[in-house]
Amino acid sequence: TMSSVLASARCFVHGVILNGDGSGTELKSDPEPNQRLWIHLDYSENDCADTLKSLGLPDNIIESLVRVSTRPRTLAEKEGFLVFLRAVNLNPGDEPDDMVSLRVWLEPDRLITVRQRRVYSIQDIRKELDAGKGSKTIHELFICLVERLADRISEYVDNMEEKLAAFEENVDDFNVSQVRTEVSSLRRQVASVRRYLAPQRDALESFYRLSRNSLEERLVYELHEQTDRTVRYVEDLDLVKERCMVLQEELMNLIAQEQNARMYVLSVVAAIFLPISFVTGLFGMNVAGLPGVEDPTAFILVAGSMGTIVVGILLYFKFKRWV
């Protein structure tokens, strides 16, 4: 039986029968023909393809569900919809921008989700079903899944915007080199997330177009709202990217100003000591005929003339407003 096959499969994570009242019952026996079923599998296990085949899925669908690398997209088949999504990676030790692949096979009365790494949005939905506050139908369950994925993405995008805003407001208080490193890392994260979020926007828009005639009106509205949310997050990431570029330019300007200030000080010092160095070099030559060699007041006269030169240069710089 299906329940015994799933129970013995290493790839089986959980199975839930929707009761139609917002609650779910753990799959322990074969469901009735009219019952709504949600099966969650781990495609990293070797028996995942065989398990999917025992569930009656076509070979081309199985191949797509267990493929190693995927990008978000939607495919409409005779039996249902194949949807590839991405979720923010919140697993301990992993980077959030290393987004987790979630593959979905959607039928009118059955939902099969397949992943390799843990998806916390799936856990959120399972808790809602256990508490009796979850989805009542399979289509509603899928829309709820999309919403929970969007909630996690929203938290991640908001966190990135807060970090960037902190850098922008206190750019003068931070170490410039450290801020440059942080902003560069932020730009890489934005690029990594947008790489999958932009196709996910297109995938949801495609699913909306293909399924709106078969969904309830309220679900069509909810799906449209979630699609719009994803579009906004892509736009927010684009804005974060632009703000990062502006901040990096500002940091480069600060570095350039600091370097110019140091070079200016060195130039002023060089301008002051250049004529003095000429005088000391001239009177320091060991040749006969130098004036004042026998005069005891000659040193005082030379030193006084060099002091006068320094004062004259400083007054000239002050007149020109260079110091």
Rank of each mutant, 00 (worst) to 15 (best):
T1A: 15
S3R: 01
A7R: 10
C11I: 06
G15Y: 00
G15H: 06
V16F: 04
I17E: 04
N19W: 01
G20N: 01
G24Q: 00
T25A: 11
K28I: 09
D30C: 15
P31E: 00
N34W: 08
R36K: 04
I39D: 02
D42M: 03
C48R: 00
C48T: 06
A49P: 08
L52Q: 03
E63Q: 12
L65G: 01
P72W: 02
T74P: 00
E77I: 01
K78R: 12
V83L: 15
R86Q: 12
L90I: 06
G93M: 11
E95V: 08
R103V: 00
T113M: 06
V114A: 01
V114G: 02
V114N: 03
R115M: 05
R115S: 10
V119G: 04
S121G: 07
I122T: 01
Q123R: 09
D124G: 00
R126L: 07
R126V: 02
E128L: 15
L129F: 06
D130L: 15
A131H: 09
G132A: 02
K133Y: 03
K136R: 14
T137Y: 09
F142P: 04
L145T: 08
A150Q: 14
A150W: 03
S154P: 05
Y156E: 05
V157E: 06
D158Q: 12
N159D: 13
M160E: 05
E161F: 11
K163M: 10
L164P: 11
A165P: 03
A166F: 08
A166E: 09
A166K: 07
F167M: 13
E169Y: 07
N170S: 10
N170Y: 10
D172E: 10
D172S: 14
D172L: 13
F174W: 12
V176P: 11
S177R: 14
Q178G: 11
Q178V: 15
V179P: 10
V179Q: 14
E182M: 12
V183G: 11
A191G: 13
R194A: 14
R194H: 11
R195A: 08
Y196I: 07
A198G: 06
P199A: 13
Q200R: 14
D202F: 08
N213E: 13
E217D: 12
E217S: 15
E217G: 09
E217M: 12
L219D: 15
L223P: 11
D228M: 14
D228L: 15
E242D: 15
R243A: 08
L247H: 05
L247R: 08
M252C: 05
I255R: 13
Q257E: 13
Q259F: 02
N260M: 12
A261R: 15
V269N: 02
P275Y: 00
P275I: 06
F278G: 00
T280D: 05
G281S: 05
N286L: 05
N286M: 09
L290Y: 11
D295V: 01
D295P: 00
F299W: 03
L301S: 05
A303W: 02
G304M: 02
S305E: 07
M306Y: 05
T308P: 03
L315M: 11
Y316N: 13
K318A: 09
W322E: 06
W322A: 03
